[in-house]
């Protein structure tokens, strides 16, 4: 049996552990404590057991927010993954065009998230926004009043903001394919489609797994952009989990229900993070995902 030789290395991890304890472990313990009490102020609390969990699990606004969240993440993946791959395939492979397109693609990723919301508020305003006013010449469009328009605006913003990430990852994957594969495909007389299906797509599997999971997690935790753009409205039509959570925990200051909600949200995120971690581990080992 193999013996551990580097147990002393654990001491080097200690500083990180202390930081994580203060930034994550102690706060999450506090949230667990909050979630089973009714709290009015420091030191003023009553033990309520699992009441908040039962209330939150039965809360139909939470169910709605959860389904909305899955719908949003699903649409994000459905649009951004194929679009990102297509853009990566269309990008030039040599010459000055490579740098030019890489920089252009990266620009949306460099803008702070709340600024993105502000940009799109102005851009899509029906009265003065370039996009909003132009579309209103053809059909009525107002993301502040009509749920469907709010979703369309949100999806446009999300796709504009994050498709470049998928594209950059897919492009990196494409560039890593040795030229010999393409030569072999050419000799066999393979069509563009079969080259894509049998060479490029399988070779991109690793980076696409990363892109898929990153995009899923990010869109599942999205807060700043919809908060700035729609504030969760009109009505509750774009109230995602994080927006609803902030409403309960910080605006209504219901720490107990907020804590229970956080932990339900947390176990969902934890499950997907773990699957993400497992998939990445296996990409690293070159196993089938």
């Amino acid at each position: 049996m193999e013996k551990w030789e580097n147990n002393k290395a654990w001491f080097l991890v200690l500083p990180v552990f202390i930081i994580v304890a203060f930034s994550s472990i102690l706060p999450i313990m506090t949230v667990v404590n909050y979630s089973i009490q009714d709290i009015w102020g420091p030191g003023q609390s009553i033990f309520v057991g699992t009441e908040w969990y039962e209330e939150m699990l039965a809360d139909h606004r939470l169910h709605d927010a959860l389904w909305r969240q899955f719908l949003f993440s699903g649409l994000v993946l459905l649009i951004e993954m194929p679009l990102g791959i297509l853009l990566a395939l269309a990008m030039p492979k040599r010459g000055w065009g490579v740098s030019a397109s890489l920089v252009t693609m990266s620009l949306p990723l460099l803008i702070p998230w709340n600024t993105i919301g502000t940009i799109w508020i102005i851009f899509t305003r029906p009265d003065i926004g370039l996009f909003g006013a132009a579309v209103n010449q053809l059909v009525e469009f107002d993301h502040t009043a009509r749920p469907l328009d709010a979703w369309i605006t949100l999806m446009l913003m999300e796709v504009w903001h994050w498709t470049p990430l998928v594209t950059l990852l897919a492009y990196a994957g494409l560039r890593a394919i040795p030229e010999a594969y393409y030569q072999a495909a050419k000799i066999d007389g393979a069509s563009t489609w079969s080259t894509f299906w049998y060479i490029q797509l399988p070779k991109m599997r690793g980076v696409l797994t990363i892109a898929f999971l990153l995009r899923f997690m990010d869109s599942f935790l999205i807060y700043a952009e919809p908060f700035v753009l729609t504030g969760g409205g009109p009505g509750n039509s774009t109230t995602f989990l994080s927006i609803y959570l902030v409403k309960i925990a910080l605006l209504q200051f219901d720490l107990g229900p907020g804590g229970a909600f956080s932990l339900i949200y947390f176990v969902i995120v934890l499950l997907f993070s773990y699957m993400f971690y497992q998939a990445l581990q296996r990409v690293g080992k070159g196993e089938k995902v």
Partner: peptide
Amino acid sequence: LEWMEWTLPTAIFF
């Protein structure tokens, strides 16, 4: 640790 609002069940849990 007062700010953490500890209770017996959560203390046992952790």
